[in-house]
Design a protein around this nucleic acid. Structure first.
Length: 401
RNA sequence: GGGGAGAUGGCCGAGCGGUCAAUGGCAGCAGACUGUAAAUCUGCCGGCGUACGCCUACGGAGGUUCGAAUCCUUCUCUCCCCA
């Protein structure tokens, strides 16, 4: 295999990246790799404590894929060790402690999902419990002696939590060190991560130096805000576009992002190159184009990336039908009535609402339509054999027959 | 080791014996307006009952009281100050 020129490689590496630290070092690494015809080791750590991936994760996975496309060795480190330890204090809910089996199951699902982005054939997958579990207490103390409390407190979230008097457990200081040990173990040349990972990635650099290795370069990527345009994309905020979402969902959710996010989404979620990003910026700035149309293009681009052109077209058509024309879908889940039932009960039991109370409220709020006609009667009854399409809110449907 | 403050609904945060399912903000849901954008306005926002009602809920366990998120005891956890 022969590598592209360093400049050409850098064009792709820079795409969408926030920071490359230090840039001259990565150039040297690339040069050396090209001269010796030896791929670089590119590390990406993942946290298997949450099983659902979204296009926010996709940003960094995509970057790893770029390196794969350039011929380098991508390594996915599954942080099963840290997931198992979890957070004994129970304060930090983002890190529940998992059993080995759970961590493993999540890891498998993670790998399965990342297949839509990564070239799984050449991907190397390692579990960090393999080496972290093997460390004994004096190893750990030796490791901690290489870092100071003051430096740890430099990490953004530690600083904030310390200042706002929220607890920081001691063991949390060990996570960056553990992650750094992964880099040492791997002799990583480059580590990727979100900007929130910058501190941890830099610790990896320091530790590699301590252990007599050439320090890794780091490539950080911007965090992608969710569809609300404010919070970081996350399933628990409900503002995510899942990698496993259907084309229709991906398209629809994309259409709901705020205008200010369009460029960023092109850059990070649609993998657009610099030229494309520039032209989008230009079109949005000229004031003649309705941003909605640019967003439609974005929606297609994102769906296309994961599902292909045909699905992108279909998703757009579906969107136009359901949302723009407020029609009902051709296909929806169907249920059969065994006896005459109150509409409220049907909606709740079909799972369209969480409770009967909610169903009742929505009916009162004119949010329920039967075959396109608003039904505000909470006593409305459906009889056996009656065929009707129920629409709750904007996008919850069920067909009764 | 000593002293002080605190733990409330998804989150933040009031309440400090009855009128508290618990003010307010954020998030969420729905409606109006739109480009399913944003902003704005309106309504909803523990569960069951179409209202009155019942059940569950103010860190855990006991207790005082006709009545407790509110008082007492104890346990668990957190923060601050001094050493």
């Amino acid at each position: 295999m022969s590598f592209l020129s360093v400049n050409n490689q850098m064009d792709l590496i820079r795409r969408g990246a926030e920071e490359i630290i230090p840039e001259n070092e990565i150039l040297k690494k690339l040069e050396k790799s090209k001269n010796e015809n030896k791929p670089l080791t590119i590390k990406l750590g993942c946290d298997p404590s949450r099983p659902d991936l979204h296009i926010g994760h996709g940003v960094v996975l995509r970057k790893l894929r770029h390196f794969q496309d350039l011929g380098h060795q991508a390594v996915l480190i599954i942080g099963d060790f840290t997931a198992m330890i979890g957070d004994p204090s129970g304060r930090n809910k983002t890190r529940p402690s998992l059993t080995l089996d759970e961590a493993k199951a999540n890891a498998e699902s993670y790998i399965e999902q990342s297949k839509v982005i990564l070239d799984i054939e050449t991907l190397k997958i390692l579990y960090n419990s393999e080496w972290l579990n093997a460390m004994n207490f004096s190893d750990v103390i030796g490791l901690t002696s290489k870092y100071t409390v003051a430096r740890m407190l430099e990490r953004d979230d530690f600083t904030k939590r310390y200042q706002s008097e929220t607890p920081i457990s001691l063991h949390e200081f060990l996570y960056p060190l553990a992650q750094g040990m992964d880099s040492v173990e791997l002799k990583a040349d480059v580590e990727l991560g979100g900007t929130d990972q910058k501190f941890n990635l830099l610790v990896g650099r320091d530790l590699q130096r301590e252990y007599g290795q050439a320090p890794q370069c780091i490539v950080t990527l911007p965090l992608l805000e969710g569809t609300d345009g404010v919070e970081k994309m996350s399933k628990s905020y409900g503002n995510d576009i899942g990698l496993m979402d259907s084309p229709e969902e991906k398209y629809g959710k994309t259409m709901s992002i705020s205008d200010g996010m369009i460029v960023k989404y092109f850059k990070l979620a649609a993998d657009a190159d610099e030229d494309k990003v520039e032209s989008v910026e230009k079109v949005l700035a000229d004031g003649k184009t309705n941003p909605r149309d640019v967003k439609r293009e974005l929606g297609r681009a994102i769906v296309e990336l994961y599902h292909g052109t045909d699905s992108a077209q279909a998703a757009e058509q579906h969107f136009d039908k359901i949302i723009v024309q407020k029609d009902i879908p051709d296909e929806m889940d169907e249920i059969e009535l065994k006896s005459d039932q109150l509409l409220v009960d049907v909606i709740a039991s079909a799972g369209l609402t969480k409770s009967k109370g909610e169903a009742r409220r929505l009916i009162k709020q004119n949010a329920v339509k039967l075959d396109g006609k608003t039904c505000a009667d909470i006593n409305h009854k459906l009889s056996v054999g009656e065929e009707v399409a129920i629409k709750v809110g904007k996008r919850r449907f069920i067909k009764v027959k």
